[in-house]
Computed example of a mutant assay.
Amino acid sequence: MENVDYKELKKGGFMRQIQKNYFSMRLKSVGGQLTVQQLETIQKVAEKYGHGYIHLTSRQGVEIPFININSISQVKTQLGEGGVKVGACGPRVRTITACQGNSICPSGLINTVEVAEELEKRYGGRELPHKFKFGVTGCCNNCLKAEENDLGIKGGIKPSWNNSECTFCGLCEAICPAKAIKVGKTDKQLYFEPDKCIYCGKCVKICPTSAWSGKSGFIVSFGGLYGNRIAIGRRLLPLIFSIEILYKTIDIALAFFEKNAKNGERFANTLDRVGWKLLEKELNKAL
């Protein structure tokens, strides 16, 4: 036991419990999705090597508590045979969280599952100065609380109004949470203030005559933090419509973090120290 590398175990998803020689084992999931086969495997491992239960984390993860240090090798083998991988802890990209997005949810504006899977392929487990969290949410209802993450991605839509199709019913004004739309039913006029628009797309979805239309895109926030210190992620860019530009944006943000962060410093703290304008300048220069 004296030669146990606890740091390496934590890196591989094994977190020490208060009980000596026992670990809570974090499992890998992407976008909160697990197959039935994976669930069956997790059940068997929890029954055989744990205490017969699992813990669901706040970030769509699964942990199996009470894994004895002497069982780690057997546990990893059995999990692997059932298609389950161990998660990541420590200073690296953590579990990618996502809601169900537009493939399931009527409110969804982007395919969150595809984005989460691509984020995992590109960045999952990447070594960084400190832990780094991605959150992907399908619309401005913000179920995944994008701005709490180091980098948040939220579905948005830029609306456009067609006068010839409008009946001036007033539904868009009634539903607009930003109060960016005013409808004059008497004078048959519609007043839209784009600067107030939050890109929620509710006007597009509710319009009965398709007078409102729009193009879906990605709202990106940087530097969110939720722990001992709370910071809300900030938007530094307009709505992004290209998936290639989205990943280029992320590449720039991670490179900036690697270049400027002190060891053990979260992204938000780095930005506060070196200046948000510096990241904004690098983004605008490259995009």
Score class of each variant (00 low, 15 high):
224 G>A: 08
91 P>G: 06
100 Q>P: 11
232 I>Q: 03
88 A>I: 11
286 A>N: 14
44 K>R: 14
44 K>E: 06
119 L>W: 08
33 Q>F: 06
284 N>G: 11
201 G>N: 11
212 W>H: 10
114 E>S: 04
121 K>N: 14
92 R>P: 01
273 R>V: 05
266 R>D: 06
195 D>R: 15
72 I>T: 10
66 F>P: 05
254 L>G: 05
213 S>N: 08
84 V>R: 13
204 V>P: 02
272 D>M: 09
281 K>P: 02
75 V>A: 05
274 V>F: 03
36 V>N: 00
37 Q>R: 11
203 C>E: 01
52 G>V: 03
143 C>H: 04
175 I>N: 03
158 K>N: 14
146 A>F: 15
222 F>K: 15
166 C>G: 06
153 I>F: 02
201 G>F: 10
106 P>R: 08
210 S>D: 15
87 G>H: 06
261 A>S: 14
130 H>W: 04
195 D>F: 03
150 D>L: 10
127 E>K: 13
250 I>R: 02
134 F>K: 14
20 K>N: 05
285 K>Q: 15
40 E>W: 09
272 D>R: 00
231 A>K: 12
21 N>V: 02
184 G>I: 04
57 T>C: 08
27 L>H: 02
28 K>L: 14
14 F>S: 03
264 G>A: 09
97 T>M: 12
166 C>T: 13
276 W>I: 06
258 E>Y: 04
228 N>T: 13
239 L>F: 01
155 G>T: 12
253 A>K: 04
58 S>W: 09
235 R>I: 13
44 K>P: 09
25 M>D: 07
155 G>H: 04
184 G>K: 00
93 V>Y: 01
268 A>H: 08
161 W>D: 12
44 K>W: 00
196 K>I: 02
184 G>Y: 12
19 Q>M: 01
64 I>M: 04
15 M>P: 00
228 N>G: 14
226 Y>I: 00
242 S>W: 10
230 I>C: 03
202 K>P: 00
213 S>E: 13
200 C>L: 11
185 K>T: 09
272 D>G: 01
255 A>M: 05
141 N>V: 15
269 N>L: 15
97 T>L: 06
186 T>F: 08
12 G>R: 09
154 K>M: 15
57 T>V: 10
249 T>V: 13
138 G>S: 06
142 N>F: 01
77 T>V: 14
47 E>A: 08
235 R>M: 01
157 I>L: 12
265 E>T: 05
162 N>C: 01
197 C>T: 12
237 L>R: 12
262 K>G: 01
12 G>F: 03
138 G>K: 12
254 L>M: 13
206 I>V: 14
138 G>I: 11
94 R>N: 08
232 I>A: 07
243 I>P: 09
78 Q>I: 11
250 I>F: 05
245 I>W: 00
62 V>N: 04
227 G>P: 06
141 N>G: 06
207 C>F: 01
223 G>D: 11
75 V>Y: 02
207 C>E: 08
178 A>P: 08
111 N>L: 14
19 Q>L: 10
69 I>C: 04
